[in-house]
Amino acid sequence: MLLVRCPWCGTRDEIEFRYGGQAGLTYPVDPEELSDEEWADYLFMRDNPKGPFRERWFHTAGCRRWFNAIRDTATHRFVATYRLDEEPPT
């Protein structure tokens, strides 16, 4: 079970959290302006890298806040976690 560092609560067991998929996707300002292809791209297409990946996590059983993480998909390990209003660490 992974250890996850919530930016507000500190390090907790993975079971307290819910995975929220790729981070950094922004809901389009005006979806109606998008073509079907562009909308489908927003809706369905996700990166699937081997290595560091920006993800969203939700501290369901804790502070109930969303935050972002950089996690290595090859080793499972978290490189960093950061608040939604923070820039990803370089």
Partner: peptide
């Protein structure tokens, strides 16, 4: 409730 909180926090803070 999860969904309300998700949209409020991540898209419309």
């Amino acid at each position: 409730l999860d969904r309300f909180e998700e949209w409020l926090q991540t898209e419309w803070p």
